[in-house]
Design a protein around this nucleic acid. Structure first.
Lengths: 148, 148
DNA sequence: AATCTTATTGAGAACGATTATCACTTGCAT
DNA sequence: ATGCAAGTGATAATCGTTCTCAATAAGATT
């Protein structure tokens, strides 16, 4: 049940959905499936025009929206921007975000069900979703001891 | 070391910082110190004009920014908007957000240090911050069994 | 291959939220 | 009371996102 990881598989999934396989979509998919980090719509636009120069910005927005709906990508919220997107992973995973370069990784969280239940009981809230995100610096963005 | 909870104490803190105690600031502080839920800048603007009608919107933005810097309020990120503010709490707390009305509560999270360490070891990231947020419906926003 | 239908597209306008500008005001130290 | 720098608000400028609509092209049908 893992989301497809190759552009080819993404395109199949789009097709299954009844959507057309257009060149603009191929370009956006190529970029998002290859991205190792969270990208803003504008970054996607710039990168995708390398594949298909007459791509329009509106189409990037529309396509990102659709890829989110298909669970192929997900939106990532950070302290600064809140409109970056990365390839999604299987199931409910938690995001680890590099504040230097935007690189993302996923990790399995602790089981938070107990805590959710406890909080629900105490607060009277019905808790039905959660975010757990870690922020830091990836290996490449850490100042090495020597550099100092 | 808990942040002050009365408007009076907030004003003292602003004063200590070397900032002037102006009427626009008093109006914004009055609103934020009383708010039980996350407010957008525009909402703050509307509410604060009840206290001081010739308040300008720019000043609201500037004041919110300053209150964040003083740790009196904090920015809350939600699935939809990312520009709402609530009164901050002592230390590192986690946010519980009502998706119906925006009401917020805080809870003490599990100790995530172990998980952070584990993730750091596996990923090579230096992890130095985290977010844990729960989303749900507060008691008032839950559809009661009868309403169905 | 030619045709048709309709989803999709891109250019540009429109929009809403945030930030910058700048002459004027006001807190507050003197 | 006075002076001055911090702060203010009206307005303009800017940014990211969404809307509009005529033109295009995917893919089914023949």
């Amino acid at each position: 049940m893992s989301p497809p990881s190759t552009p080819r598989a993404w395109l199949q999934r789009i097709n299954q959905d009844g959507s057309r396989l257009t060149r603009p979509r191929r370009a956006v998919v190529a970029v998002m499936a290859a991205a190792q980090r969270a990208l803003s719509p504008l970054e996607v636009y710039d990168l995708a025009r390398a594949h298909y120069p007459r791509l329009g910005l509106s189409t990037v927005y529309r396509t990102l929206e659709r890829l989110v709906a298909l669970d192929l990508i997900q939106r990532v919220h950070g302290p600064d921007g809140c409109h970056a997107y990365v390839a999604a992973t299987a199931g409910h995973q938690h995001v680890l975000l590099c504040e230097g370069c935007g690189r993302t990784a996923y990790f399995d969280g602790d089981n938070l069900d107990g805590l959710m239940q406890q909080v629900a009981d105490r607060s009277g809230f019905q808790v039905h979703d959660h975010w757990l995100q870690f922020f830091g610096l990836c290996a490449d963005c850490q100042p090495s001891e020597r550099d100092h």
